[in-house]
Each structure stands twice: as structure tokens, then as C-alpha cells.
Design a protein around this nucleic acid. Structure first.
Length: 930
RNA sequence: GCGCCCAUAGCUCAGCUGGAUAGAGCAACGGCCUUAUAAGCCGUAGGCCGCAGGUUCGAAUCCUGCUGGGCGCACCA
């Protein structure tokens, strides 16, 4: 007869094929409908708080791998914290102001852009940002991120805009805000000042010229008396010459006077030859040498303007190119500016915000600087001041948005002074009180804050929160008081930051207000705030406003944020609250391709999260996030994804097998007490206990790759290859309610429940899906996101058992090797076809004395005989001294039910095809004879 | 150019404060099974520990330099 139906074969409705791409959206829909996030928050509200504060992505464009990695990492941390017993709310946020949005709206508006009023334009920007928030929100949700998606924070919410203004006004009130004319990067195409972070370097072809600055005063060098002497400068920006006020020489270099063609040129000695060559002078004589210090302070004639330029000293002058005499325009260069401060030079910047010369530039007024370059050169050529002109390709700063070359231009800007109110020192002290993960994050940000310039807050653009400062038209003082601050706050809460532009300045001030100078006419500042200020104050706008805790437990972003959000938040919070806004900061690396190269469209190595989800599902994306050690760069490639998909299948299938053997198990009534479990089952629990600790430890230290590898190894090595393979016989063949079968099921159930919990933060979809296929158990939690991780259980550790079984597994390994040899020689196929003779050395003999039957079972052979001396033809082990193994085909009959070869097959008349064990089972089941 | 970081099998990771033949899993290759079956089991192979020096009885581990890569900064008059 067919005994198959008398076996307890595995059975479950949990599908082997995950079909993630289809099933995940169904789960998401269900969770959204049920209000899962709210349910979890409600259920955990009395637990201690763990606050991870979300850094806002910029609301523009689709999400990339970096976004996906970051958000999933946060999700895994929050889910694991909840399972550690915390209440962990998660308010996602978006950064919605700023130039990129403004530029895209510009583009959409096209020609109309110039006609529409500011407020309409801002409205369009708001709409644009809202559209991307919606898109990105949907994309984040699809990753399986559990968050308060219905109540995110947006930097364009009225309440948020009000908070920004409030925080700015705090700085204004405490005297940290300074106005200064400073050269800043300026994009004349975008007509805005750029933060340094908004400037990128790229190759650019410039006109490089050598220009004579005729010496105006007596050099005091006899050899040069009565001669036509010029200092020669080299520059790649002819258009900045109208702003020239000095020529800088290096205090330590030797300079020489070189005579050619009847004139004398002053150059650094080290560059004389190349320079004279560039001028086309084949022959020249060195009249004399002198140190730059000898001519410091002397005056030269400007090459084409009726004024003089001073000879100054600066140690940034190099001998790499040029003449060693550097054209200095404090209004057009940072170093020039510093030199200018030292020598009290004028900061000239005769260029307007579109890059057009102003009347200060004399005859060049009205000309764009780009058009002026050749004209200036021609003029100097004509006047004989131009010695040489060339094209030069070099790295030059470009605008990060429009990719056009930027200029340095002195304009009025608003700053938070790093050294006002001791901000720098306070920030440095606060850094030391924060836990940085990895620890080198501290040095990184410390160095950055230590050396950073003042924070330029102002942008001459439309889409942002205004700098809420009011100045007196008569004396220029800033009017700041409680009344104004309060009024601004009220307006912003009601109407958003638009109120600043919609209402007259008087409406923000007390009626009849007069400046101390007596002035009664006031002007609102038109500049807007740097967006880093917007996001920087999120601790106030989000955490404080929503009654959450500050400082937050954790900020978590890519390592670029050491000089982005981590820093702006730190400075804002230290400047107004005196403390860092976070207790801990975790950073991760950047997503790179399989060669470790960053992703870029031009290389074509970009992988979008959307593609991965379409092809594999979010679970694979999440598994990827968990599998990589993010402290380094995070690699992704098709190969990695394929591997993860395989790995996922293994975990899923192992889970499925556990479930399939629990179909008839009732935890309430069938559970076997720990002490009554079979030894192998207790051993399995000890392995599970070790896994549990490894996984819990991995979550605790945010080392999710430990979780991934732990689960992966456990499923493969401990369960699939060993434990599950061995207990099959018991599970399938014994009576359903037998002690040995229930013993195995007790352990399978505990492991199944535990494993699903342990994988929940990573593979949320799969864990939740499988959870429903467990046997009924009233004691089990319904909702995995509220459930706690399984506790550590010292009873399960079973150290002696652990050691003993390590040895047994080793011996088993030796047996399986010989089985493989026999298989190769076609002596056996399935291990149950084998009969084994084993002999061991004295030391092993003792520890294995009563383990022969165990070995027979775990080697899954039909018969294992222990012999004192090596059997004839036995194979000696290479790794265990004295161990020999002989494998032969078993000569007894195969039991048709359990496939074991046994001498008892045939001894039962009513069931001649099965062994005694199976006969007893079949009889107990009441099955009539075959 | 400067600061911080990274480099171990084809892939993802272990390898603790220096200690013996550098470990797992996956993938690869070969075989078995058909009672987890678009599964499962067994076996085999695979490493100049980025390169070069140095310290040491002993280096994947410590030091120096170099190469490649990442993030950030600066400069390019």
C-alpha cells in the first residue's frame, strides 16, 4: 500500500513564492486603512520615549538610492527600538524652500516668469514643493517605512515658517546677526549669492593676460632711476581690473627688475624667464634683485583708471604661474578681501547683480563682464599696458544649479557671526557631549566648525522665509523688539511667510513707532534665509512644537551632513538654546556602484530604488540596507541584488518549512516542558539563543549586517542543513501526538515565533505575512510592530550541550565526507541506503561512548556500527586523528514508509513492507492491513 | 593641496587589545534525492588580507609612504 498518507508531511498555505511586487502593495493598503502607525503609537504610548528626528529630504525629484538607504535604515532602527520596548514616534519631514525649486518653477513659467508678482511666484513654488512631497511620500511608503505620513513636517507649513522667523529673531535679538559687505560667490545668471556648498568646480577657458602697472613713486633703487618701470601682474579675470586697488607680492620671494625693449619690468625672479618668454622678449637683462619688503607700500598707476594701486605683501602668492605679483581686488576675492582689511583698502565691486558694470566702472558701465573682457584687453593693448594675452583652461567655480561660472562680488549680506556670543566655542564644547557613530564623526565635525567662516544667511531670491529685519531709513539701524517679533509670529502663523511681503512694514510695528534717531520711515529686508537655516531649526519647529523631546536621541544622515544639517542644527540650537539638538548622531556612507564609484548619470551606473522594487520588491531593498556595513561606502550592483534575492528565498523557505510542520501543533496544549525536550531539541534552542543574542546585539549597536548574517547563517547552517534535516524522521514518521514529535514542534514553534520577531524590523512584509500562518495561540501578540523581541534566556544557553554537539557535528562531517565518496562510487545514493562502521581513538571513544545512536540519527544513515578496530577498507579522517569510517550499502530492506533500511521490515504480516517502528505507528493510527 | 574615512575569496561579512594552517554564508563547480520539490541534502575548489617598506621572536592587525575609492574643505590671482 501507499503509506504516504500515513505520514505527517509538511503542510502550509504560506506560499513558497513570495510574489513580493504584488503582495507588498496589498499589505501597505491594509496598513494604511487600519491606521497601523496610529495604532502602534497608541499601544506604545506609555513606554519610554526614543526619538529619532528625521532630516528633511529636499522636495524635488524622485527618490534615489541614498534616500532609500537612509529612510529604510531609520525605519529599521525605529522598529527595532519599539521591539526593545520604546515608544518611538516618527515624524517625516521635507525641505521645501530654496533655489532648486525656484529654478524649476522659473523653467515651468518660462517667459511669464518676469511678469508675475512675487506672491504668485511664491505660490507656484509652494505648489511645486507640495507636488514633490506627495510623490516622494508615496515612494517612501512603498519602501515599507512606518511613519506619521499623514502629519509630516514641511518647512513651508505656516507654523514651521513662523518658527523659522522666531528662531531668526532670537539670533537678531541676542546680537549674533551681523550685516557686512563681503565678497561672496555670486551667480550673475541666477542673480544670487551662493553658499560655498552651492559652488562646484569645473573646467573653464579664461583669457589670461599680463598687465603693466607703471610704478608711480620713487622705488629708491638707484639702478632704476629715470627708467620706465612697471610691476607686471597676471590675471585670468580681466574684468576685475576696474576693482583693482593693489598688487600683492610675497614677502619672502626675490623680485627682480628686468630690462627689455627699453622698459623695466618687475617680476618674481623665479618666474622672470617664463614671463619674459610669454611677452616675446628673446633678450633681456636683469638690472637688479630686491626683496618685496623693500617696495611694500609704494604706489603704481592703475593701467586704465585715474588712480593708484598699492604694493602689498601676502603669503598666498605662489611661483606656480604668472609673475609673482598678484592683481588684488578686495571686492572680488576672498584672499584679496583679507589683504584689503589688513591694508585698509577700498572694497570696490563695480558690478551689479546681473554681472553688468555700474557707473563706478567708468567707461565700461552698462557692459556685461563677459562682454567687457575683450574690450578691456583691447583698450590696454591700445594703451600699451597689455604685455601678453592667451587662452587658459583651468578649474573655475561654477554655480551648482545653472552650471555657469560664478564670480566673487562684494555685496551686503546677513551673517551669523561664528564668534559673536562665543558661538564657535560653545558649539565645539557641545560637539563633545554628543555620541557620534562612528566615533570619528566627532573629529570630522569638530574640525569643520573650528575652521568655518561666518554663516552667510542671506539669499537674494524669492522662494524662502524672509530675513525678518526692519531697518530705519534714516540711520540704518535694525528695529527689533518684542512687539515686532510677536507681530511677525502672529502674521506668519496665520498667513505664512508670505505675510512679510503682503503687508506694509507699518503693520509689523507699533503705531507711531519712532526710531531712536527720530526716524519714522522703515524698510523690510527683502533677502530670504539660507535653507540650511530652515532645516536647522527643525528641533524647534517640530520637536518643541509637537511636544516631543529635545534634544532628540538621534539624528541619522549621510556623512555629507557633517557640514550640512548636523552643523546648521547644531549652530542654530547652540546659538539659541546653548545645547546641541541631538544626543547622538549616526552617519552612513554613500551608495556607490560595484567598483566603488559614485553613481552619476554621465557614467550611467545609476540604479533607482524604483527599479529594484519593480523587479524584486521592497523586501530585497530592505535586506540590502541591512546587509551592508554602512560605515563604509555602500555598494550596490545587480550581482549583489541577485545574491540578496537568493538569500531572501532561503530565509523565506526555512520559515515556510517551520510553519508547515506546525499545522497540527497547539501551543497551549502540545508544548513540552524544557526539561522534557529531546537533547537535540534543547541543543537547537541553545543555537537559537545564540542567534537571538547576536541579532539583539546587532540591533542595539545599529550593526544590521550582523542581523542579516546571523539570520542567514542560522537558517542555512543550523536549521536547513542540520536540525531540520535530522528531525524530519520524527516529524513525519512518529505518531502526531508523540512526545518526540511534540518535542521537536515545541522548539520549531518557539524558533518560528522568535525568528519572525527578529526579522520584523528588516523584512517587515514577510514577517507579518508569515505571522498569520502560525498555529493559533491566544498568548501570542497580534501585532508584530507592537510585540517585543524575544527576551534572552540563560536556561537556553546550555554551554555543555553546545560543546558536546560541536564535537558530534565534527564527527558527522567526517561521516558525510565518506558517504559522499561512496555515493561517487555508486555504492549508495540517499544516505539512508548506507550502513556505516566507525572506529575512533581512545580520547574520542570516551566522549562518544553513549552517542553512537545519536550519530546514527544525525548522520541520517540506516545503521551505524561502532567497532573497536578500523574496518577493512575504512577511510581515515584527515582532521580527526584515529577516526575511520566505512560505508557500505545496507543489506536490509527499505521501509516503504520511512525509508530506513531495517531488519524488521517484513516481520509484520499485516504490513510486510514497513519497519517495526512504523508498524507500531500505523497500528496505533488504526490502519488496517495492506 | 588639506582634513576625516575605507581597502580581507566572484559577492556580502567575521577575524577582540599583534599569536599557530585567515573563517562563515552566498555564488561557482561536481554529485545525490524526489517525503520542504520553480525545493532539499552532500562534497569540491576558491585568499600576495590593495602595493611597498618598517617595528617585532611573530603583522590582516601597529607605524610610514604609495595606489585606488568615498565624504568634506581649500585654491586656482
Amino acid at each position: 500500500m501507499d503509506y504516504r498518507s500515513t505520514l505527517n508531511l509538511p503542510q502550509t498555505k504560506f506560499k513558497m513564492k513570495a510574489n513580493l511586487t504584488q503582495k507588498e502593495p496589498e499589505f501597505l493598503k491594509k496598513w494604511e486603512k487600519e491606521g497601523l502607525y496610529a495604532e502602534v503609537q497608541e499601544a506604545t504610548k506609555d513606554r519610554p520615549l526614543y526619538l529619532l528626528h528625521d532630516g528633511p529630504p529636499y522636495a524635488n525629484g524622485h527618490l534615489h538610492m541614498g534616500h532609500a538607504f537612509n529612510k529604510i535604515l531609520k525605519d529599521m532602527i525605529l522598529k527595532s527600538k519599539r521591539m526593545f520596548g520604546y515608544h518611538a514616534p516618527y515624524v517625516p519631514g521635507w525641505d521645501c524652500h530654496g533655489l532648486p525649486i525656484e529654478l524649476n518653477v522659473d523653467k515651468e513659467l518660462g517667459a511669464k516668469k518676469k511678469e508675475i508678482p512675487k506672491l504668485s511666484f511664491r505660490g507656484a513654488c509652494r505648489k511645486y514643493a507640495g507636488k514633490w512631497v506627495k510623490t516622494q511620500s508615496a515612494e517612501f511608503k512603498r519602501f515599507g517605512v512606518l511613519a506619521d505620513w499623514d502629519n509630516p513636517y514641511l518647512t513651508i507649513h505656516y507654523s514651521y515658517e513662523a518658527a523659522i522667523a522666531r528662531e531668526f529673531n532670537r539670533f537678531l535679538t541676542n546680537g549674533s546677526v551681523v550685516r557686512a559687505k563681503k565678497p561672496v560667490y555670486w551667480c550673475s545668471s541666477c542673480t544670487t549669492a551662493l553658499a560655498e556648498a552651492e559652488v562646484e568646480y569645473d573646467d573653464h577657458t579664461s583669457t589670461s593676460i599680463y598687465v603693466k602697472f607703471p610704478v608711480a613713486s620713487d622705488l629708491g633703487i638707484p639702478a632704476l632711476e629715470g627708467k620706465q618701470v612697471s610691476v607686471v601682474i597676471w590675471t585670468t579675470t580681466p574684468w576685475t581690473l576696474p576693482a583693482n586697488v593693489a598688487v600683492a607680492l610675497h614677502p619672502k620671494f626675490d623680485y627682480g627688475a628686468y630690462e627689455a625693449n627699453g622698459e623695466v619690468y618687475i617680476l618674481a625672479q623665479g618666474l622672470a624667464e617664463s614671463a619674459m618668454h610669454a611677452f616675446g622678449f628673446a633678450e633681456y637683462t636683469e638690472v637688479c634683485l630686491f626683496s618685496a619688503t623693500e617696495i611694500e607700500g609704494l604706489e603704481c598707476h592703475h593701467p586704465f583708471l585715474p588712480r593708484t594701486s598699492k604694493i602689498v605683501l601676502a603669503d598666498y602668492v605662489t611661483l606656480e604661474t604668472g609673475t609673482g605679483c598678484v592683481h588684488t581686488a578686495p571686492g572680488h576675492g576672498r584672499e584679496d578681501y583679507i589683504t584689503g582689511l589688513k591694508y585698509e583698502l577700498d572694497v570696490l565691486s563695480p558690478v551689479d547683480d546681473r554681472g553688468v558694470f555700474t557707473e563706478e566702472a567708468g567707461k565700461y558701465m552698462g557692459m556685461h563682464i563677459n562682454d567687457a573682457n575683450p574690450v578691456i584687453c583691447e583698450d590696454m593693448q591700445a594703451s600699451g599696458h597689455l604685455l601678453s594675452q592667451n587662452k587658459m583652461n583651468h578649474s573655475y567655480p561654477h554655480c551648482w544649479r545653472c552650471k555657469k561660472p560664478v564670480i566673487f562680488r562684494a555685496t551686503k549680506q546677513w551673517f551669523i557671526g561664528m564668534d559673536n556670543n562665543d558661538l564657535r566655542q560653545k558649539a565645539l564644547a557641545a560637539i563633545k557631549d554628543v555620541t557620534w557613530i562612528p566615533s570619528w564623526g566627532m573629529e570630522r565635525i569638530y574640525g569643520m566648525v573650528e575652521g568655518r567662516p561666518d554663516w552667510c544667511l542671506s539669499r537674494q531670491r524669492a522662494w524662502g522665509v524672509p530675513i525678518t529685519a526692519i531697518t530705519c531709513d534714516d540711520c540704518g539701524e535694525i528695529m527689533n523688539n518684542d512687539f515686532i517679533n510677536k507681530r511677525i509670529d502672529e502674521f506668519f502663523i496665520k498667513e505664512g511667510a508670505d505675510a512679510w511681503f503682503a503687508h506694509d512694514v507699518k503693520e509689523f510695528m507699533e503705531e507711531g513707532f519712532q526710531c531712536l534717531c527720530g526716524g519714522t520711515s522703515f524698510t523690510k529686508e527683502e533677502d530670504i534665509l539660507d535653507v540650511w537655516f530652515d532645516s536647522g531649526v527643525s528641533y524647534a519647529a517640530v520637536l518643541e512644537e509637537r511636544g516631543l523631546e529635545t534634544p532628540a536621541d538621534l539624528y541619522l544622515e549621510g556623512s555629507d551632513q557633517h557640514r550640512g544639517w548636523f552643523q546648521s542644527a547644531l549652530l542654530a540650537s547652540v546659538g539659541t538654546r546653548g545645547v546641541a539638538p541631538y544626543k547622538g548622531v549616526l552617519t552612513h556612507g554613500f551608495v556607490v556602484d560595484k567598483h566603488g564609484k559614485k553613481m552619476s548619470k554621465s557614467i550611467g551606473n545609476v540604479i533607482a530604488p524604483e527599479e529594484i522594487i519593480k523587479q524584486y520588491g521592497a523586501e530585497i531593498l530592505r535586506l540590502w540596507v541591512s546587509s551592508e556595513d554602512y560605515r563604509d561606502d555602500i555598494k550596490i550592483s545587480d550581482e549583489i541584488l541577485r545574491q540578496l534575492a537568493d538569500s531572501y528565498r532561503k530565509i523565506r523557505n526555512t520559515t515556510r518549512y517551520l510553519l508547515s510542520n506546525l499545522g497540527d501543533f497547539n501551543p497551549a496544549t502540545d508544548t513540552i516542558a524544557f526539561d522534557d525536550l529531546e537533547e537535540l531539541d534543547r541543543w537547537a534552542l541553545s543555537q537559537y539563543e545564540r542567534l537571538k543574542r547576536k541579532v539583539r546585539g546587532g540591533y542595539e549597536s545599529f550593526e544590521f549586517h550582523q542581523v542579516y548574517h546571523g539570520l542567514q547563517n542560522f537558517c542555512t547552517v543550523t536549521l536547513s542543513n542540520f536540525y531540520l534535516d535530522i528531525i524530519k524522521d520524527r516529524l513525519y514518521s512518529e505518531l502526531p501526538d508523540s512526545l518526540s514529535r511534540r518535542s521537536a514542534q515545541t522548539v520549531l514553534y518557539e524558533i518560528a515565533v522568535g525568528m519572525l520577531k527578529l526579522m520584523t524590523p528588516v523584512n517587515s512584509f514577510t514577517a507579518v505575512e508569515a505571522w498569520d500562518y502560525l498555529p493559533e495561540d491566544a498568548a501570542r501578540e497580534d501585532n508584530l510592530f507592537i510585540a517585543l523581541f524575544p527576551d534572552e534566556n540563560d536556561d537556553y544557553l546550555q554551554d555543555e550541550l553546545h560543546g558536546k554537539w560541536q564535537q558530534l557535528q565534527q564527527v558527522r562531517g567526517e561521516i558525510t565526507k565518506v558517504l559522499e565518496l561512496a555515493r561517487r562510487e555508486k555504492i549508495i545514493g540517499h544516505p539512508l541506503e548506507a550502513e556505516v562502521w566507525i572506529s575512533v581513538g581512545v580520547d574520542l571513544a570516551e566522549s562518544l561512548a553513549d552517542q553512537w545512536q545519536t550519530l546514527e540519527r544525525i548522520a541520517n544513515v540506516s545503521k551505524l556500527n561502532h567497532v573497536d578496530a578500523p574496518a577493512v577498507g575504512a577511510t581515515s579522517s584527515e582532521t580527526i586523528a584515529g577516526l575511520t569510517v566505512l560505508v557500505k550499502a545496507a543489506t536490509t530492506e527499505k521501509c516503504e514508509r520511512c525509508w530506513t533500511r531495517s531488519a524488521t521490515v517484513g516481520s509484520h504480516g499485516d504490513h510486510p513492507e514497513i519497519c517495526s517502528r512504523c508498524h507500531a505507528v500505523v497500528t496505533a493510527l488504526g490502519i488496517e492491513e495492506a
